[in-house]
């Protein structure tokens, strides 16, 4: 009621015979986890296809909205003079899929970096990208002393990405 009322110590729960529930909940949790991990959901859940998967799918990939993930192939980046068209190839070391995209890519975009592109395969074997995402690795490195003119390297890595506007 008022602030001066002293609260009683919390009473011990009378009915604490819930051990069977604890065991039951644990069983359900472990069973659910087992189903998820051993039940093959791992194989059925695919976030993106690799270039080999897309190649193997053949005509099935044409027209279907899919995600293609892999590495940007070395020397494959080309940007049109107007800066609106961006072409590059995605590879997994075995297969290569050429990708056509529009717009300015994220700053991290460069050769050898991971990308996930969303879109569809066209009949001419080019992946038409609607959404370009850069996927970076788990490495975080401080610039080494020998790389002091680091900016030069950074600028170089973005060559070909600059739109003619800037």
């Amino acid at each position: 009621m008022t602030d001066t009322v002293r609260l009683p110590a919390p009473p011990v729960r009378r009915n604490n015979n819930k051990r069977w529930l604890a065991v039951l909940a644990l069983v359900v949790a472990v069973a659910g986890f087992g189903l998820l991990t051993a039940g093959g959901i791992g194989e059925n859940l695919v976030y993106y296809w690799g270039p080999s998967d897309v190649r193997n799918a053949g005509d099935q990939a044409v027209g279907a909205t899919i995600r293609l993930g892999g590495q940007v192939a070395k020397g494959s980046i080309r940007q049109s003079a107007e800066g609106s068209l961006l072409e590059f190839s995605v590879t997994d070391g075995k297969a290569v899929v050429p990708v056509r995209s529009t717009g300015v890519p994220p700053q991290m975009f460069r050769e050898d970096i991971g990308v996930v592109v969303e879109g569809t395969m066209t009949k001419d074997g080019v992946f038409e990208c609607k959404r370009l995402m850069v996927s970076h690795g788990n490495e975080y490195r401080a610039p080494v002393d020998s790389e002091t003119p680091d900016m030069e390297k950074l600028i170089k890595s973005t060559e070909g990405l600059k739109s003619s506007g800037d």
């Binding site: 529930l21 604890a22 909940a25 949790a29 695919v46 976030y47 993930g69 970076h136 690795g137």
Partner: peptide, 27 residues
């Protein structure tokens, strides 16, 4: 308590998601 124990299944899945499946998120 029962709900928490069952929902906890998601915690190892969050942790291992980047290893079990290919993902945009780095490992």
């Amino acid at each position: 308590a029962v709900a928490t124990i069952i929902a906890f299944v998601d915690v190892p899945i969050v942790y291992f998601s980047v290893r079990w499946w290919n993902s945009l998120h780095q490992m």
